[in-house]
Design a protein around this nucleic acid. Structure first.
Lengths: 206, 206
DNA sequence: ACTCTTACTGAGACTCCGTTTCAAGTTGAG
DNA sequence: CTCAACTTGAAACGGAGTCTCAGTAAGAGT
């Protein structure tokens, strides 16, 4: 990171000047990587190349991200937390399936703020197996975050790991979210994502 | 494969003698690998080691399997086909969700024929991310195999890729199957898998 | 302002997965 | 018996991810 005169981000910062640098570097790397991935494809882009263009060493890059996939899948953790929060905020009398449906709007709204960017992101996700795999792992974390709340709403006992209902509900809902996203990509965003999500989740409860 | 005096499989064989050898080798490698994976864990077992103990070279092993994960996940392709066949065989008047439920018995029955073996297999699957990832990829193939039939049963148009309902139904059902399997593992097989599957799929349609 | 601890950095070596090349060997058909 | 097609092991290679080590910069205490 020998030079960063143009990157700004110099002013006030209570939470440690070091933390800010870290965030800046992460953002820079993600931006570079996304561009290269879209230009050349995920598999035909090496971590070496990303590191070089972002101006840091390969080793340092792995300290920031852990895996190549995480470079572009970093925000998913955050999105999962937002969905879980939205779920907990739904009124108590709402049925689990319904509550899940509206909790997902925390994400669909985010999608529709930058449709074009999101579409190419989804496209890359769809035809890169290793990215799909990592994305799925992240969604498993989402599941874990949502299951306690659904367990509560079902009135089920939390210390009964063999009860498949909370897991089934959350996982099935996420499957619908994925199906809706796939459909949204297929029609290039022509039909709004919330509409597709309604159809997907509605098809199961008839 | 310098020696296989005890492995038998010598007698009549119409479908090419060479094909039979291939199948024998595959079975041998899978057996060795499964033992090592359970003994030492998936990640702490190298392909080199498996090849050595199975009596072939690393390169040849990759010619048979493609990836390390496929060594133990080879049958999944076949299971998926069986489920798809079972689905197509369900009576026409059955609702999609119901048809999916009974199609899955093609797999639950298979599980219960060797519970102990299946349980340790599921355990390995559960705490090995790379295996989970590959397993998920295989299930995506299952999806593709089932979607045409569900599309037909819904009376939906096959050339409407943006309709999320067939995908949602199949993916949600598979999510229930996974949730049931997880529950089955959690109680060490105490509750029968079909029962857990009923609860899982029933929880969503209320 | 100076020091000391702490943590981050780049460089490079290493393990392992997966692919490719090549020469040697095997199988089966004519 | 010969030739063509296929399979094998050996070896090198590319790439991801881990680890060690020495150098250096940030932040706290004085």
């Amino acid at each position: 990171m020998t030079d960063f005169t143009g990157t700004a981000a110099r002013s006030a910062a209570k939470p440690g000047l070091r933390e800010r640098m870290r965030a800046t570097v992460r953002a820079e790397v993600t931006e570079v990587a996304l561009r290269l991935f879209i230009e050349q494809g995920f598999d035909r882009t090496t971590v070496e190349q990303i590191a070089a263009e972002a101006g840091l060493s390969r080793a340092s890059l792995f300290r920031h991200f852990g895996t190549k996939e995480d470079i572009v899948l970093g925000d998913l953790e955050e999105i999962g937390r937002q969905i879980a929060d939205a779920l907990a905020a739904r009124p108590d009398q709402e049925q689990p399936w319904e509550a899940l449906r509206w909790a997902f709007d925390a994400m669909t709204l985010r999608y529709e703020t930058a449709p074009k960017q999101t579409l190419s992101y989804l496209r890359m996700l769809q035809d890169t197996p290793s990215l799909r795999a990592r994305h799925y792992e992240k969604q498993l974390r989402w599941q874990e975050m949502m299951i306690p709340e659904i367990t509560r709403r079902l009135g089920a006992s939390p210390d009964r790991p063999e009860d498949p209902r909370p897991t089934a509900l959350v996982a099935a809902a996420l499957a619908c979210l994925d199906a809706a996203s796939t459909g949204w990509l297929a029609c290039e965003g022509a039909v709004p994502l919330p509409v597709l999500l309604d159809r997907a989740m509605g098809a199961i409860t008839e």
